[in-house]
């Protein structure tokens, strides 16, 4: 991103895709996790965050929810819900971590239970459409002002999708702050764990950081 470049806020819309593939037990879940497309891993680790963005703390990812609530495997569920997604900068590594936890479980049990009929794990995926909004910022004051008005989908795209799906290593906001000669602000933003906020809470946290470090 060039110094002085205008930041254009985008928003996004997700179309959920059905993969026609399901798992009845942890073994089949593990096979599925290893073989589905990246967008499916992203969908199942982020759907709750997006669909239930008003809850704090948000429910865990789909894998944790299903193993806990349907298979009644509390320990595995806790391990899966504790996967610290912010540490992953590529889907491949996140997929590997989830598969390793499922493998570890399979090696530790004599037999794994099957889900009741109709409550199997259905693998899904997502196709994301990105559109430019009318909001843009040429400096930090305009950036903070825009943050108050953009939609939560916009925040979601620039923070979550940009980091993990676009595999940039960091989010769009911190990249722009660096280009503006504000490395301290960018670093402060990266210290924030967006997965522990509701999206409205995240908006407020972002505004507070931008305002606090704007002059540093």
């Amino acid at each position: 991103m060039a110094p002085g470049a205008t930041f254009r806020f985008n928003t996004k819309f997700d179309q959920t895709l059905l993969l026609g593939k399901k798992a009845r037990n942890v073994g089949e879940l593990c096979q599925g996790v290893r073989s589905v497309p990246d967008a499916s891993i992203y969908y199942h680790t982020h759907k709750f965050l997006q669909q239930h963005h008003y809850l704090s703390p948000e429910p865990p990812n789909d894998f944790a929810y299903w193993t806990t609530q349907v298979l009644n495997e509390a320990t595995l569920g806790e391990q899966l819900s504790s996967v610290d997604i912010i540490q992953f900068h590529a889907i491949a590594a996140l997929r590997q971590r989830i598969a390793d936890l499922l493998d570890g479980y399979l090696q530790s049990v004599y037999r794994s239970v099957d889900a009741p009929e109709g409550q199997e794990f259905y693998f899904m995926s997502t196709q994301t459409f990105v559109l430019a909004t009318r909001y843009e910022a040429r400096d930090l004051a305009e950036f903070a002002a825009a943050l108050r008005h953009i939609s939560i989908q916009s925040i979601y795209f620039h923070v979550f999708d940009a980091t993990l799906r676009l595999a940039q290593g960091e989010n769009d906001f911190s990249l722009w702050f660096r280009a503006q000669g504000k490395p301290r602000l960018a670093d402060q933003l990266l210290r924030l764990d967006p997965y522990t906020y509701t999206l409205e809470g995240l908006r407020q946290a972002l505004i507070a950081i931008v305002e606090r470090y704007a002059d540093d």
């Binding site: 179309q15 967008a39 997502t126 196709q127 994301t128 459409f129 990105v130 999708d161 676009l166």
Partner: peptide, 16 residues
Amino acid sequence: LLAFLSLEHKGDIVHL
């Protein structure tokens, strides 16, 4: 609307 767009566009992330 997304369903119609998804018939016109391929790829996980589509910039419109």
